[in-house]
Amino acid sequence: MTVSHHITDDLLYLYAAGELDFGWSLAIATHLAMCPQCRHRNAMFEDVLAASLEDEEIAEVHTSVDDILGMVQGLPSLENTPDVEVIEKPVFPKPLRDVAGDLKDIKWSAMGGGIKQKIIHEQDGVISRLLYIPANKAASSHGHNGLELTQVVVGGFYDGDQAFNCGDMQIVGHESPHQPLAMSDGPCICLAVTDAPLQFQNLLPKLFQRAFRI
């Protein structure tokens, strides 16, 4: 698996700083699991951020070292233990499995034309969904007000003249419509993270108005 569409510096840096919402972080962590190159860049950015620990002024800490040693008393060391027994190699990388389960666990909703989706996380207007596009099928064309990160976890797709293979991340900015077409050798499964259209926030009050005739 050779990844050719990577996470941009700015997004990766904000991820390393811990400044991104859950959904964006989920897409980035899934990409990192599939891309050693971006993992290396991520480690470098963590060094950059940590460097501010060395050259910054210091603040007074009221906790003593004995306080800390008191807190850890009786707590076990934390080990990095691998999963006890993996019978079958999972399809989804761990960050995605932690939220959605593995591919076999997904309860898809049909969207017509063999295309399926499953919303796996939603918070503060950021929606994470899995998309299943059968071979040679195209998802509906859509524009978007905000940012959309699409991480390929199975198969691959074309969008215009660009190919996105397993492991690649497509980053689509503001209002550029796009239409992913699954490659011919099998279905394509992507994790797509978007921010909800802004008008949605006004729609709910309107619905309430209608329902309650206020």
Binding site: A29, A33, P36, R39, N80, T81, V86, P90, K94
Partner: peptide, 15 residues
């Protein structure tokens, strides 16, 4: 929790 890759994940692309 912050989503992050897990070095022990069997589905992880190896360095």
């Amino acid at each position: 929790n912050r989503p992050e890759p897990d070095m022990n994940d069997p589905a992880m692309a190896q360095d």
